[in-house]
């Protein structure tokens, strides 16, 4: 059985990249589940797609844009209405260490 598609280190890294603080139980569960899903994905390797162009966009639309016009924005109150924390018109977050 090949289960070396994904390592514990990978799960660790993916957790960090996804900004998820995973519990040890979660790490174990996801390692198992994601490994079996990724194994299932291996079937795509059967297909030769060298000459095939990817379908990044389902439609054939091109160059969709708007004129450079200003319309009204939200009020500060509306903008901050959903904020978990705010102060003096700003969103407030725990200290950011640059």
């Amino acid at each position: 059985m090949k289960s070396n598609i994904l390592s514990e280190k990978d799960i660790e890294k993916v957790g960090k990249l996804s900004r998820l603080k995973l519990t040890p139980e979660e790490k174990e569960l996801y390692l198992k589940q994601l490994s079996s899903i990724l194994e299932f994905m291996e079937q795509l390797k059967e297909l030769n797609t060298e000459e095939v162009l990817p379908t990044f966009y389902p439609l054939d639309l091109k160059s969709v844009w708007r004129k450079d016009c200003v319309t009204s924005s939200l009020s500060q109150e509306e903008a901050l209405d959903n904020a978990p924390a705010k102060e003096r018109g700003y969103f407030k977050v725990p200290r950011i260490i640059e």
Binding site: S18, L20, Y30, Q33, L34
Partner: peptide, 9 residues
């Protein structure tokens, strides 16, 4: 979370 991790990976 599973799908976020799958996509991120």
């Amino acid at each position: 979370k599973r799908r976020i991790m799958l996509g991120t990976f």
